[in-house]
């Protein structure tokens, strides 16, 4: 829960989540038919192939998705979105922002993980932006990830190392301290980052202990 987020205050359940007793659990989490994704969809730096490149620094993000048993998550759908170099989303809900839109940047893309769970994306390094001026809350540069695959589901945000705003961001600081480094990309070189993801399993079938 994010303490200083007005939506969170009215939407986060007040009652504790109900733990289903182990004997009443089954492993049937969603296995959706994943849609096909065109190769150019993993490149957010142009709104279509052949169009001009968006403003800002082009970065490459690569990584691997593993499940709770550290097996690669193959052919999962990754949906990725981020603000432009000025810190503005090309989303109708971001209309109050003073930062300019970039006509060459939509800021969303998709990619499927390969046979070994790897993915590669190209995007523009997002700018920071003011999330709430009344409390002076700035969001540090970050990239949103949604991962949908065979029995796994994760929505998270990736941060960049050495950004002073990281430690002042309510959404980042709500993550337990020991886990915060897991959402910070590793620098590969000046323009490329590595972001590996390990997705918790849900009521996984016991493999070695039989019920």
């Amino acid at each position: 829960m994010v303490i200083n987020d007005r939506e969170s205050e009215t939407r986060t359940p007040a009652r504790p989540l109900i733990v289903i007793p182990a004997e009443a659990r089954d492993p049937f989490s969603a296995v959706p038919a994943v849609p096909s994704v065109a190769p150019h969809e993993c490149d957010l730096t142009r709104i279509a192939p052949g169009r001009p490149q968006a403003a800002g620094d082009v970065i490459v993000i690569k990584g691997r998705i593993l499940d709770a048993d550290l097996r690669p998550v193959r052919h999962a759908l990754m949906e990725v979105w981020n603000a432009n170099t000025h810190g503005r989303y090309s989303h109708s809900e971001d209309a109050s922002s003073q930062a300019p839109l970039d006509p060459h940047f939509y800021g969303f893309g998709r990619v499927l993980t390969d046979d070994h769970g790897f993915y590669t994306l190209r995007t523009i390094k997002p700018g920071a932006y003011m999330a709430r001026s009344d409390i002076g809350w700035w969001r540090p540069p970050h990239v949103h990830f949604s991962i949908l695959g065979s029995g796994i589901r994760l929505v998270t945000q990736m941060y960049f190392p050495d950004e002073p705003l990281n430690t002042q961001d309510y959404i980042h600081m709500i993550i337990p301290e020991l886990e915060r480094s897991r959402v910070i990309a590793q620098v590969h070189d000046q323009h490329s980052f590595r972001f590996d993801i390990i997705v918790r399993g849900r009521y996984q079938t016991p493999l070695e202990t039989t019920v």
Binding site: W81, A83, V155, I171, R182, I197, V199
Partner: peptide, 23 residues
Amino acid sequence: MSNFDPPFTPEGTLGPFYPGVFA
């Protein structure tokens, strides 16, 4: 099975700007 947890990636909010085209 081991009781050791791997370094699971923390979950986060979808935020206000999830692209409508994905939905």
